[in-house]
Structure formats: C-alpha cells, structure tokens
Design a protein around this nucleic acid. Structure first.
Lengths: 350, 350
DNA sequence: CCAATTTACCAAAGCGCTTTGAAAATTGCA
DNA sequence: TGCAATTTTCAAAGCGCTTTGGTAAATTGG
C-alpha cells in the first residue's frame, strides 16, 4: 500500500492524505479522521526512503562500531549504550544505522556515511587521546556528539562524559583512607582517552597524599576478565604485593577476584578492590551491599543523554555545543576494607 | 556533490555517469576512468535514499533489539552477534538498521519496518517457544532468518542454530561419567527456545543413565552473574547439595564460581562446573586449559552465518529455506573433576 | 562507398513521498 | 442574496538516483 493507492481509495488527492497524516492544519478534522482510520486499516506507513528523499532528512543516526579483526574485541558496554540511545531514537522517530567496520577503515566509513547522505548525525564511541575523528566530522559538517572527550583537542565540540578523573581520584583516596599504600591500577588501553583521565585521577590522589607512585603497579590493557586475572595473579605472587586494586571495569575485576580467591586470600579483607561500574545489565552490582565498592555511572543512561543531545543538535543547527559532565556515584560494597597493616596497627593500640 | 553536479562537471549526462559508476558495459573504458577519478576526487557517493528509492531495494537489514524497560536487560551476546553479522553486511554493501523497542511492542515494530519499506530482510533474535514472530514475518512476506529455532512451529523457515540439545546432553554425560549424580542446571528463561532444548538435553542424559531427576535442581532465569551466585550459594548451603553445575552461559557460571569459593570449596575438585560458552570477546575461555569446561560455539560466527544466509535469501527469492545446525565443541577445562564420592571410592580401592 | 551493425551517449520517465501555488468549496457579513 | 474572506482540496514540481527507449557517431562488411 502506497500513498497513491491510499488516496485513490479515499477519493482524495495525495496532497490531502499526506497532510492529514502529518498533522498539518489545513485539512478538515473529519477528513483527517477518515484518512487516519484508512491508513491504520490498511497498515499504511509512508515509505521511508521516499519520505526522507523528499524532506532531505534521513531521520537516521549513525553509529560506527570499530571491530578489530585481529583480536576480535567488541566493547561490552556497547550493547547497553545502544539500548539507551535506541530508546531515545524510538521516541523521536529516528532510526539507528550501525556500521561495523574494520579498525583501520573507520575514517573512510564516516566519510561515506555522510557523503551518501545516509545519516543526519553521528555518535562517536570510545574517543582516543587526540582523536582524529573530531576534526574529520567537523570538516564534513555533520552534527555529532562524542561519548567521552578527547584530550589535546581544544576545538569546541559536543560531548557527554563521566568525570573519570574525579571518580578515580575519589576511589583512590578511599583506598588511601583505609590505609592502603600499594594500589594497583588496571586501566584500559593507553590510547583511550578515558584511560588517560582515570590514570590522572589515580595519580593525583597518590601525589596529594605524598604516596610514592610505583609504575610497576599500573597496567594498560584491553579490559578482559583474563587481564584482571593474570595481572592480579602475578602481582599477588610477587614480592611486596599490592593490598588493593583499582579496576576500570567490572569485567577485569571479576578476574581479580578469581586470582584473589585462587591465592587463598579474601577480597575485602586481605585485598581490597574498587571498580568503575558501568551498570551493565548482566552484572548488576547494586543492592544494599554490592559485591564491589564502585564509582557507578550507568552507560545506558549515558546513551540516552548522548542521543538526546544529538537529536537536539540536529533540530537546532545553530545551537551552541552541548558539553555535559556526568558524576559517578561512590558506593561502598563488600570488596574493600582496611589495609592489613593498618588493621594490625589499630589492634595493637587497643 | 550529487550526480547532476558531477555529470555537469564532466560534461556528460547523468545516465552515462551513473552507468560508468555502476559498471555497466555500454560506456567507453576511457570515459569510465575519467568518471571514476572525478568521483573519487570530489568524494562523490550516490545518495543512499535516492538510490534505494530508484532501485526499490533498501540494501538494509533490520535487527530488532527488544529491551524490557522493567528489568533493563540487554542480551550480552547481542554485541558479538552484531559484530559478526555486521562484517558480512559491510562486505556486501548492506546497512544494518537497529530498532530498539520495548518488549511488548516488538511485533508492531516488525510490521512498521516492513510497511515503511525500510529493510529488505530481518533477523530474528532470541526466538521463544512457539514464537509468533515467525508467522508474522511469513505473513508480511519479508525475507528473514532466525538465530535459533522455535519449537512447536512446523512451518518451513530459515534458521541457523546451535545443536543445544546435543551440547547439553554431552556436558551432562561428561559430568555423569565423572561420577556426579546431583547436577544443578542453571538455564535461561523458560520461554526461550534455546532453554527448552538445553533442558531437554540435560534430561535426556540423566534419563539415559537412569539418574533420578530432581526438579529442585533446575532453574530458569535471566542469565545474570547474580542468578548464578545466589542460586549456587543457596544450593551449596542446603542439605544434599549438588556436586556439579551446568550453566547456560559463562556469566552465571562466574557467579557460581564466586559462590563456590565463598563457601570455602574448590571448583574442579569439590564442585564441578560446565558451561555453554558463546565465546564472548571479553570473557575468553580458551587456551590449553580454559577456566571452564565448556561446549563452545562462537556467537560471532553464528552472526556471520545468519547474515550470509539472509543475504543469499534476498538475492534469490525463490530459493529453498536455509536450515543450518552448528555443533558445539566440548573442551575440557579446569572447572571439572571427579565427583567427591567417586574419588573416595577409587581411593579406597587402591 | 554505403547500408547494416555496433558502440557510446543522452533525454526523460519513474521510484513514493512532501510541498508549493492555485483552484474549489464553504463561510461570514452586509 | 451576493461577494470577499477563509477553509479545504488538488495538480504538479521536485528530492537524486536508475533505467527505458531512444539517437547520433563510429565501425564493419560486402
């Protein structure tokens, strides 16, 4: 069923039917009712491609999912983020175009998305330090919003980010307050912007307290369960092991937990663990007393915010950039406790 | 830059430029070269919407991601599946349209996707027992492929599925061979088709060996880490605890592992665990001796197969249905060992 | 060398919609 | 009742592409 057929059926012109359907005022209310009803009855929905061609708006948002064919990693926060963004798109009549591209052809993929006129706007995932995509998208003149930020780029662009530095400074301070001095950091890949900021927060906390930084306790890797496990296993078996771990995501933290219990130690007593919790749906870390002490910031919520910001940007081209900082909430769970040394000292005092 | 501008620039007609670009024979090779070059130089790519309008093909595959607003779950295998499918789409010039919809309006969403002419084909995720979407999509006459199958529907439709029944029968037999008799099953939601098949495999193995089935050891729930943890915690604390667990995914199994070590037990010795491993990228369970004994079947690979099947179907409308069964590989890891009773018996024999 | 092909290109129609500009129908008011 | 103002409807153009049905130019064969 297309517009012509529907309007022939109703004995009206395509113009009138179109206007009736799209809520224009210059059509009698009784006519509109009839049209609406007929459309519903015949399951008519305007052809997307024709409509977007005529209006010049694609009503589509592009997401590029870079997937390395080498290590086959696909970011686990992606699904939750998309779910959040997708809710907003549905509510606003936008489609979501997902482009899965090989790591090294990401830029070409953005270019093509725009020159094909396939999307009205783009969301940038996982910005790196000094990310070249920002300059590219500005050059292409397409509206975009970054989930995260990119250090060293001072151009004005729209972003929604968690205050990573502050979050990691807080959890590190929290561990320091508990008497921990050797604190390992399991961070994301070094070129990722969020990892840089988290590292900075961690260092700021240590330095503010005059605690010596040990580079041998700082790790940058793909945030797999195995990374957490192997790193913690080695550290715990070595001389002078850390008494606490800061993990960039719940996934490596699960590996850390495994290594701790394999070593016959108890998490929250012998070794403390704090995490950044993205509130992934299959790894809920909530309740009165969550498994992990965490700075939490829902990535699904971030998806909603980013999507809304982009839609606003598309609706109002001239508007100023949208820059939004989300604060992470620090929640204490069962994975942290006083450093063993401090506990002993306090017991002796008694 | 659009076709008209490009052809004016070249002093050629739109027809010729279009044909040159699309590889038709009736254009001189030297002209084609010139056109190609100019297109590249000016970063011309044909407008997707105009092109698809003219050809009548959307060159887009639809995926519907149902997201319950209640429990906010988004299937963690989704991202990996999409990554696999997306690779195939990219290679074949298809776009991926992702529709995030609320649980209860999923059907309406398929309807609209088709009547809007937004997609050439649809992939069905997470089929339930007697899934109504199959009848719906047949009625709509749109090509589709199901990732999984739907019991009780005998209509011919295309699917790619893992042999879930066989896989779970095998792991259950494996545990029985090790002397386990009380084996808990942590399955997915009861209305999911895969859960039904897995349950059937588990039961078939027990029955074949004449082992009494204890319904109190079978659980159907959303496959979260917490489900695994809580279930195992309670079972291990109760009278007559199971000596082995079969988990439908690595995620609840991680919870089971946590409960085991919290109870002061050792996985692989006191309690055995086997899993279905979807080979999620952030939870690699491979290497010489993986953490978990598992039946493995890469969901990313499944994504590739499903996507390819759908593309073929679109290209050849008359072709017979595609039904493909993937077998899962049983790999022995560190999470399984002889049942304590059997071990004792064998030690006495010596 | 000229008719018959073949080659290389082009004008225009059409995909299904929105939107402009105009016409027809209705209403208001003297 | 008559005419201007207003409301309602319509025909046709246009969005950027593909494709049909040509035509002129180049090539071939006898």
């Amino acid at each position: 069923m297309n517009l012509k057929e529907l309007s022939d059926l109703l004995g009206l012109s395509q113009t009138t039917v179109s206007r009736a359907l799209n809520g224009y005022p210059e059509v009698r209310e009784s006519t509109r009712q009839k049209v609406m009803e007929a459309a519903r009855a015949h399951n008519y929905a305007p052809n997307t491609r024709a409509k977007t061609l005529a209006t010049g708006k694609a009503m589509t948002i592009g997401h590029v999912l870079p997937v390395s064919k080498k290590h086959e990693m696909v970011n686990p926060i992606f699904a939750d983020f998309i779910a959040g963004a997708g809710e907003i798109y549905s509510d606003n009549g936008f489609d979501l175009l997902l482009s899965v591209v090989d790591d090294d052809s990401e830029e070409a993929s953005y270019r093509k998305l725009v020159s094909r006129g396939a999307v009205d706007g783009i969301i940038v995932h996982g910005p790196k330090v000094n990310d070249s995509r920002i300059a590219l998208l500005r050059e292409l003149g397409v509206p975009f919003v970054v989930h995260g930020r990119s250090t060293e780029i001072d151009a004005d662009y729209s972003w929604v980010d968690v205050n990573n530095t502050r979050a990691f400074q807080r959890v590190t301070e929290f561990l320091l307050d508990l008497g921990h001095r050797r604190i390992a950091l399991l961070n994301g890949l070094a070129d990722m912007d969020f990892a840089t900021r988290r590292g900075a927060g961690y260092l700021a906390a240590l330095e503010a307290r005059g605690v010596q930084v040990d580079p041998a306790l700082m790790f940058h890797e793909e945030m797999t369960e195995n990374f957490g496990f192997e790193t913690a296993r080695k550290l715990l078996a070595a001389d002078n092991p850390p008494t606490a771990f800061v993990a960039s995501s719940i996934i490596p933290a699960i590996g850390v937990r495994r290594a701790i219990s394999d070593a016959g130690l108890e998490m929250g007593k012998d070794v403390s663990v704090v995490i950044h919790d993205d509130a992934l749906s299959y790894f809920s870390n909530d309740g009165d007393e969550p498994a992990f002490t965490a700075v939490r910031s829902s990535v699904r919520q971030a998806g909603r915010h980013v999507a809304q910001a982009l839609i606003n940007k598309i609706a109002t081209p001239g508007a100023p950039v949208h820059q939004e900082m989300l604060e992470a909430v620090l929640t204490v769970g069962r994975s942290t406790g006083q450093a063993p040394a401090l506990r002993q000292a306090m017991e002796q005092e008694k």
